[in-house]
């Protein structure tokens, strides 16, 4: 049997050749098993494609993860830049304010906390330097206008009574109508507002008019913007009309402020205030103290 099979193999190998290289035996065997070959090959190809898809999907997933991480990093960077830009704008506003109000001695402070009570409108500020100079009652301003006044100080921090606190009262004048009144904080827990009291009934005020400090109360410097009139309502009877104002400064988003230490002795544009020179008393004239001239 072995010899027969060897012979068969030899015959196939050496004599089963046609014009195309494959003889009749070879063609028969090929035809019989070709369908099986095709089936197995196509199944294997499907598996290969599936595997390739899986691999590429894994790669895409990994790439997606990397891109997400990159996106997150860029978002963080953008947020950081937004924060820096916002801080830059705020600080620029503060610098502009300091530049415009050279008549005032200003001390920078950073807002470090707000009142937790819904009844009071108070914020804490951290003083940048020289906290000893800051005293209760000193006005606190921001680039938009007036913020409030210092209520108390402790080391490097101070408590500021906002203009919307019910304990705050500011002598004000309306910019256009020149109507006078008193801005008293409403102390409402859900918004920052103040009401204008003692506004004359016949004063021709309009909504949107700016409200400024008069400087007559001896506490706040003259010409600081306090707010803008939001509502006006004449009382049915009486001498006055009801009005409300909204602070010029966004008190909810305030981060840096200036404490006004006092007048600087300069004009707002920075030139020295020209004090009238005292007339020189003529020689031999009696001194103000009544004493005579020193021989």
């Amino acid at each position: 049997m072995g010899i027969l099979l060897f012979t068969l193999s030899g015959v196939c190998l050496f004599f089963d050749h046609g014009d195309t290289g494959a003889g009749p035996m070879s063609r028969i065997v090929g035809r019989v098993f070709s369908p099986l070959h095709v089936v197995v090959t196509s199944a294997a190809r499907s598996v290969r494609e599936l595997r390739a898809d899986y691999v590429s999907l894994t790669e895409v997933r990994a790439q997606n993860r990397a891109l997400e991480a990159e996106l997150q990093a860029m978002r963080n960077e953008r947020d950081e830049l937004d924060g820096l830009r916002s801080e830059n704008e705020r600080l620029r506003g503060l610098l502009e304010l300091a530049d415009k109000r050279k008549d005032l001695r200003l001390r920078a402070a950073r807002v470090s906390g707000r009142s937790v009570s819904p009844y009071f409108r108070v914020m804490k500020v951290t003083l940048e330097a020289n906290g000893d100079e800051v005293k209760p009652g000193m006005p606190v301003i921001a680039p938009g206008g007036l913020v409030g006044q210092v209520r108390s100080t402790t080391n490097a921090t101070a408590e500021v009574l906002l203009i919307t606190d019910p304990r705050s009262a500011i002598d004000v004048v309306l910019e256009t109508s020149r109507a006078r009144g008193l801005a008293v904080g409403t102390g409402e827990p859900d918004r920052y507002a103040a009401r204008l009291e003692y506004l004359q009934r016949n004063d021709e005020t309009v909504v949107g008019e700016r409200v400024m400090t008069t400087g007559d109360d001896g506490r706040y410097p003259r010409g600081l913007a306090v707010g803008r009139v939001t509502t006006l309502k004449a009382q049915a009877h009486g001498l006055f009309q009801d009005a409300e104002l909204e602070p010029m400064v966004d008190l909810s988003a305030l981060e840096e402020v200036f404490v006004v230490l006092g007048p600087s002795g300069l004009t707002p544009d920075g030139t020295d205030i020209q004090r009238p020179e005292k007339p020189t008393p003529p020689a031999g004239a009696p001194s103000a103290r009544g004493g005579g001239a020193v021989p």
């Binding site: 099979l5 060897f6 068969l8 193999s9 030899g10 015959v11 196939c12 190998l13 050496f14 089963d16 050749h17 290289g21 494959a22 003889g23 035996m25 070879s26 065997v29 090929g30 019989v32 098993f33 070709s34 070959h37």
Partner: peptide, 15 residues
Amino acid sequence: VADAFAGSPLGMHMF
């Protein structure tokens, strides 16, 4: 069958 699958001359894998 291996020859058919491999495309080799018939008899090679038989041998």
